[in-house]
Design a protein around this nucleic acid. Sequence first.
DNA 1: CGTCTGACTGCCC
DNA 2: TGGGCAGCCAGAC
Length: 334
Amino acid sequence: MHVGIDVSATRGFDIAALDDDRRLVLLAKARDLDAAAVIARGLPSESVIAVDAPPAPSRGLVAGGKRFRVAEEELHKLGVSLYPVPPDDAEPSSWMREGYALFEVLAKAGFPVFLEGPARASVSIEVYPHLTYRTLSGTVRGKLSKIEWSRAALRRRVSGVQKDATQDQLDAVAAALTAWYFAHDRWVGYGDPREGVIFAPLAEDREEAPVGQDQLSLAIETGGPMGSIAAAGTREISFADRVLRLVSHIPLGRVATYGDIARACGNPSGARAVGTILSGHAFEVPTHRVVDARGLPSPAFGGGPGVQLERLASEGVRIEGGRVDLAACRWSPA
DNA sequence: CGTCTGACTGCCC
DNA sequence: TGGGCAGCCAGAC
């Protein structure tokens, strides 16, 4: 059985299971860890369980004294942004703590975390549904809503998914599908086995590629709505595309202002429009790395400006008196 | 198409 | 310093 679990601190665990023919055979909700443990113990022992959450804190293995994990850095280089997992001494998000606890429960139920070696059954793995959607569809989200994009990536790859499935449920299915790819030895791992590895499918039409990397960068550099930065000067690519493309390249640990982005995209007075654009793409691009000209976070940031500052702090950005230290952390697009 | 609404900025007290 | 304010640009009806 190939199982996927979507972790949410407030909404509980969504659990999906696929059989070997990728039919959805189970879609359940577990309110808390105990309920999840009961379901886990009922699974066939040769199952693979994919969880949308990290199993452990960062161990600071990235060069340069950064605090996030190697997995985050590797994916960032591919243009995929995700929540940085902080080291032990920092406060993780509540859903990350749920993840740590869940992986412990799964280990006790007979599914220890898999980190390296040949793929095998009876393990749990960390996955990232957004990465799975992106690898499978070969494109970035574009104009589709997140849920439409998710559904499109799963269509024809999984059967039995209800039309009215929630985003959490689709993410659980995506995780289960990733477990299926893992069990069928078509997978890619990102990160360092000593602290945590994120697994993704190897897209079917490029099985020879060493990693999903070609697939991903291809999506960025060509067809996708993100367009190419090389062509940024031409009218061919919209302002919005250039903005998203550029923001996706702000390094971890650095920030840019709305004005910086606008200027670099050839529209010096478009700072306000940059905000408008970012507000619609908070999930796929690290929008928390964009602050206003004084270093202040956005009052409308998802979860509140405090959350934006917390995420920046966990990435190593210096915060002082509720604003980021622009002099120290400002990134200039070159 | 106009009109309205912001995850903005710089300038003026 | 910091608040007020008038431009500004891209999306959403």
